[in-house]
Design a protein around this nucleic acid. Structure first.
Lengths: 136, 136
DNA sequence: GTAACTGCAAAATATTTGCATCCTT
DNA sequence: AAGGATGCAAATATTTTGCAGTTAC
């Protein structure tokens, strides 16, 4: 399926920046911050538009947001078919404390934890921190 | 053990703001943001000093930082005896999407996930999101 | 043609830093 | 007494908003 189709599938108009950012993320195995995208695309697009593209992608279920303890969030492509209504990314994330990269471990599901009475979860985020395969 | 002893245990001088914030957190069952502390303490202390106190407590292993997807981090007391060198908070967190509170589920350990080859984790954060016991 | 998207300026929010003064030890 | 802690001002970092002009459909 082409990039154009992916965007239209999520009810989005096809624009340059959306194609470029989408393509960039598909080729990438790590999550990106806004700052990284800005370095790559600031010659062609405004930084505000990059923020808006990220938020649009989040809303449409193209991306998921990964909070980090460093002040700026990271974003990565959703694996399957998230939408505005249904947004589920139940895989494990890993953050390398050396190269600072965040990778999605799509094959690892978050294990089930029995929550205390009357806690009803509909989402979970599991982030490991340590040395990744390239840095260890 | 008194608050003063707890602070000295972590190589900290005993000052008003440190005592007040420490006491506030001990009495609390949820994680707090800087903004919440500011509302409580801004008459007595400067907002910058609150930031510095949080960072000092983080560094000394009194607090742990909980990144959220809302732009501002939350902080909660460490359970046992974290230090600057050893900082381990391997319990589950729960964020209520209604009341927005973040609680530490100290009794729930993060389950072991077998990471891919050559990934070496030394820390993990697991955050569930949904309705807490009071809101469900 | 029209609603949605983009760029630029500015605002809002979150956090850190410099420095003079004050306080704990 | 000395070094760490605080308050104030200012700087930096991150993200959002308003609006006019442009573009996808």
């Amino acid at each position: 399926m082409t990039v154009e189709h992916h965007l239209k599938d999520h009810d989005l108009r096809v624009t340059d920046i959306r194609k470029r950012i989408y393509e960039y993320l598909v080729d990438l195995d790590t999550a990106v911050s806004h700052a990284e995208l800005e370095m790559v695309f600031s010659n062609d697009f405004d930084r505000v538009t990059i923020y808006r593209t990220l938020n649009t992608f989040l809303d449409k279920g193209i991306l998921h947001k990964i909070p980090t303890d460093t002040g700026s969030a990271k974003y990565a492509l959703c694996k399957d078919h998230c939408t505005t209504e249904e947004h589920i990314d139940d895989h494990v994330h890993f953050k390398c404390s050396k190269c600072e990269k965040v990778v999605c471990l799509h094959d690892l599901e978050i294990p089930n934890v029995k929550l205390p009475e009357n806690f009803k979860a509909n989402n979970a985020v599991l982030m490991y921190e340590g040395l990744c395969d390239k840095c260890s």
